[in-house]
Design a protein around this nucleic acid. Sequence first.
RNA 1: CGGGGUGUGGCCCAGUCCGGUUAAGGCACCUGCUUUGGGAGCAGGGGAUCGCAAGUUCGAAUCUUGCCACCCCGACCA
Length: 489
Amino acid sequence: MAKHLTKRSENYSQWYNELVVKADLAETSAVRGAMVIKPYGYAIWEKMKEQLDKMFKETGHSNAYFPMFIPKSFFSKEASHVDGFAKECAVVTHYRLKNDENGKIVVDESAKLEEELIVRPTSETIIWHTYKNWIQSYRDLPLLINQWANVVRWEMRTRLFLRTSEFLWQEGHTAHATKEEAITETEQMINIYAEFAEKWMAMPVIKGTKTDSERFAGALETYTIEALMQDGKALQSGTSHFLGQNFAKAFDVKFATKEGTQEYVWASSWGVSTRLMGALIMAHSDDNGLILPPKLAPIQVVIVPIFKGEEQLKEISEKVDIIIDKLKAKGISVKYDDRDTQKPGFKFAEYELKGVPIRLAIGKRDLENNNIELARRDTYEKKIYSQDGIENVIEDLLNEIQENIYKKALDFREETTTIVDNLDDFKAAIEKGGFVSAHWDGTEESEQKIKEITKATIRCIPIKNILEDGDCIYSGNKSTQRVLFAKAY
RNA sequence: CGGGGUGUGGCCCAGUCCGGUUAAGGCACCUGCUUUGGGAGCAGGGGAUCGCAAGUUCGAAUCUUGCCACCCCGACCA
C-alpha cells in the first residue's frame, strides 16, 4: 500500500480512483468495465441495502426476483424504452462452446439461439410481461414489488462505482389502479431516497423532476435526487419514474374495475445503485482517506492497543474487553486490532484511510490513569477520556459525527450554489463549479445550446421551487421559474 | 467509437531510441534479531516465459505487423 493518496486539489478523479482501491472498497477485474467489490466495500453496500430494504418494506413493498435474461422481442414493445437502452445492451446469442481443431475453445455456431436474449439493462419489460398474468382485477392492485439485482449496461467509459458495465441495484416496479396513486407512489419513493441520502449517508440532496431530454426512457415524469460532490460536479443519486400507462399498454396489462370496465394499470419504477457508493466516497472523504457516516460504517469504533510484549497486551486487553462489551450492548460495532505485526502508527493511518469514525488508543500510561485516548475521523480531534463511561461518550459522539459531516456537506453545497441572471455570469458560475440556479424558457433547444456552450446540464427542476417571472439566460424568452444546472457525472 | 498515452514479479517503475552474458531499484512478501503513544531498523531470502500472437535475426523486453487491456480528452450514462 502506497503511503499517500493524491491530493484532491491536485487531481480529483485520480484521488477518487486511488481511494477506492486503497481503502479496499473495489478493484477492476478481468472483465472490461466490470468491478470486483471487495469485502470492506461490500460491507458498506450491505449496510445501505439493509436500511433501504427496511424502508421499502415499511412502505408496503415486497421483494421478488425476475430473470436476468430478457427475450429481445420484449424490448421492441415500448418504443422510447428501446431507444434509450439499445446502444448499451449485452446480447446472448449462443448457448454452447466447443473445442475447435486446434484445441481452442470456440462458440459452437450450431448452438445459436432462436431468439437472442438481452442481459437486462433494467427490468421493466420482463416484469411487465409477468404482471400481465398477475393482474386481473382491482383487487390485485396496488402491486408493490422490489428486486435486488445486477444489471448490465455496456458503457464506453467506466469508473469504479460511478459507472460500471455491471452494477448492483434495486429496482421497484409498482402497478396501480389510478394515475393519482401511481404519482403518489413515485413521489413517496423519491422522498424515501432523499431521507436515506440525508439521514444515513449524511449527504444533502435536492429533489426535483427531470426535463424532457433527461427523462427516463419510457417515463412521463422522472423524479431525481441530485447531490453535489466536492469537485463541484453533480451526481444523480436516485430516480423514481412515473410511467403512466406506457408499459401497461405495451404489455397489455388491464384490470377489471369495481364497475366492471377494463382499464390499463398505472405504473412507477424507481432505483438506486452501487453508484451511491461513489456518492458516499466523494461527498465526505478527504486527502487522508474515507470519511464514513457512522450509520453506514461497517466498523464504527476501532481500538488500537499500544504495548510492549505479551504481558502488557494482556493487561490492556482485559480493560479493552470491558469497553467492547459495553459498546456492543449499545449496538455499536467495534474492532479491536491487537495485531502485533503492525505498529500503532501504521494502524492509525490504515483506519483513517478506511474512514472508521472513532479510534480509541490505549497504552501503559492510560492503564495507570484509567484513561483512553479518543480520536475523531472527521475533525482529527484527539482527547483523553476516563475509561468509565466511555461508551456513553462514544454513543453521543457517533451521532455528533453523523450530523457534523452532513452539515459540512450542506454548507459546502450552499457556498457553491450560485444564482445568476445572465449567460456571462452563468458561464463563470459553471466554470467555478457547483449548482447554478437560473431561468430557463422550458425549451429543449435552449437546454441543448446551454449544454453545448458550457457542458452544464439541467440537473432538475426543484420540487420546492418558488415560481417567479424572469428571462431565460440563453434565449431571453419569458420563464416562470429557475432550474438547477451543473456539470454532472 | 474518434484523438492522445501506457503495458516489465502483487504494486510503483529503470532499461526500449541505438537488439548482445544473470532484466536494475523501491514498496509489499518470507525468516531472524531489535522495536512499538502517528505509516520501524538491520541482516538474509523467495518471486518475472518483459500484455498476447505472429514475423525479422545467430540472438528480441528492445525492431515489424496484428490483437488485447488500461489511463486521459470527446459523444453516452444509474
